[in-house]
Amino acid sequence: MSNPTSRRSDRRSPAPSRSGAAGLLHTSRAATRWAGLVLGSLLMLVPMYVLVVNAFKDQDDIQNSPFGLPLSRLTLAHVQDVLDNPDFDLVKAYGVTLLFVVVVNVLSLAVCGPVSYVIARGRGRRHVALLLMFVAGTFIPNQVLLIPVVFVLKTLGLMGTVPGFVLFETCLTIPFSVFLYAAYIRTIPRELDEAAAIDGAGRIGTFWRIVFPLMRPVVATAVILHSLSIWNDFVTPQIILGPGSGLYTVTTGVYAAIGQYSTNYTVVFPNLLLAIAPALAFFIVMQRYIVNGLTSGATKG
């Protein structure tokens, strides 16, 4: 497709010195770029269009014209059916999932903040080892780990419970959080800590009162990215909380609701739409922060 230099010349065109052939080449390159981008966008957006439109149509209309938009026959009935589903209370699932997101984030901060501070300020080999151990956790395929985790949680009496789920979900945030926090704390001058020490603050106090408030940007990054992954996680709640607990997150609930009705599109589309809506709304509002967060996470690697 295009590349940095051709984009650069886009801005200057039409350059007076450009010969006819080069100009033609340039125009055709710009046209290819636009064609590619528009085609790509269509491919990205049509599934979303299909989802939104069909959530408001009857089965006949979905079957006969899946891409059509029969304005006069659109209905809220099926969306209403999802909200009235006696087996799965979606509104409650929103609340439950949101609560999990909040609790896990708070717990993650409480657990990962202090250890990152110790690692970042430590000069010993054991601090490096500790960081490496946590970061290595990134490479463990975590669904695969769920099998033995179940037995650890059973031993602790936490299997099938909310604390068990929250603890494991928090544990999953450790590698990324510690990696990000430790790198960030290293950029905060040690002199601040030392000044606090002279004023008589202990290490724990120094971290929470002096260092932690300065970590706001990196904490925001971690919270945003963890929130998305907790909200979207399916395997962990499905296995640890299990269908037996009667406690559904958005993903496990939708999975249960769609399960045996996967060919009944008046069930499928409204469920999917309602499941996606909060994440998409979050994306539209927070897009810049999500992108910045991801970027800062990866560039520190």
């Binding site: 599934p47 399916f234 499941a275 994440a279």
Partner: peptide, 30 residues
Amino acid sequence: VFFYPYVISALIIGFLWSAILSNGGVINNY
């Protein structure tokens, strides 16, 4: 437009494309 699927659960993306691609799905109906 290119990035938004990142914020959607892989499970939901799977269900959506299944509804689009399966035998009785959107494309084959069309």
